[in-house]
Amino acid sequence: MKLPGFAAKIVPRIKSLSPQEFWHLAGRHEGLLYSSAFQYTGNRFDAEDLVQETFLAAFRSRHQLRDRGKMKSWLFIILRNNYLKRAGRKPNRTQNEYDDRIEYDYAEDLAAMAGQEDALQALERKATAENVHRQLSALPESYQSVLILYYLKEFTYQEIADMLEIPIGTVMSRLARGKQRLKAAFIKKAARAAAPKKIIPLARKG
């Protein structure tokens, strides 16, 4: 029987997950949650706390999960909300500005660097996990979340869009702009590191 539109709100809810079922299903995603939490917080202790909070919050509200197949996305949403609450940040939803200057600088700087072996090596040395996290956390949350989800390689663009409640086109543009900002920051750091140190000889007395 085809249900009318209004019936979406009144169709029977699936039976709430039992504690055993919940832990069985949720436990599978501890790696994903921990990795995301690690990217958000930048250290293992806070990441562990954040994941534990996420599991507890999800367990308490497990009756709200209507589709068991969406456990992974649902857990991530809770984790992100917990992180935003902890960090006192609000999800940025309106990042429409497009900084063309960064785009130009990046391409030019990369072109300049691509010809220098030292500069490229400096770039690779700078791109450590710690530095990546530092630059990532400096980005607006709207870019941060998209980049984290993208690089975990666990979600499709559509799943990322659903989780962050944004259109798929916005996911793609935020990804492009987020990467652009991240890369531009690294290029600048590497360029500074590779620049020859100017030594100004001091005049000796006598």
Partner: peptide, 10 residues
């Protein structure tokens, strides 16, 4: 970036 942000074992 991909290496830095890949899955971290819990």
């Amino acid at each position: 970036f991909s290496n830095s942000m890949r899955m971290t074992p819990p």
